[in-house]
């Protein structure tokens, strides 16, 4: 059974690997746009990566206003 914490940890690991940012530089409550240095198009890449990894669908509108890893993990957890 995946917990919210394990989902969060997987997101951080996946984002760090995809955008080539050291994992230790990412923290759960950080603004992921700033932490990863990504623009709106790269955000879509991240969204797709997460959907593929967790086998969920994340409608774009559910991510409006979401900018930290912890809330992102909660949105994913709600669809697993």
């Amino acid at each position: 059974m995946q917990t919210a914490e394990s989902t969060l940890e997987e997101i951080l690991t996946l984002a760090a690997a995809h955008f080539k940012v050291p994992r230790e530089k990412l923290s759960p409550d950080e603004d992921f746009f700033k932490a990863l240095g990504i623009d709106s198009l790269q955000t879509l890449d991240l969204l797709t990566k997460l959907e593929n990894h967790f086998h969920v669908e994340l409608p774009d509108y559910e991510l409006q206003g979401v900018s930290d890893f912890r809330t992102l993990a909660a949105r994913i957890q709600a669809r697993r």
């Binding site: 709106s40 955000t43 879509l44 774009d60 509108y61 409006q64």
Partner: peptide
């Protein structure tokens, strides 16, 4: 200046 202008 939204960080997600491509998202509906």
């Amino acid at each position: 200046t939204d960080a997600q202008p491509y998202l509906p």
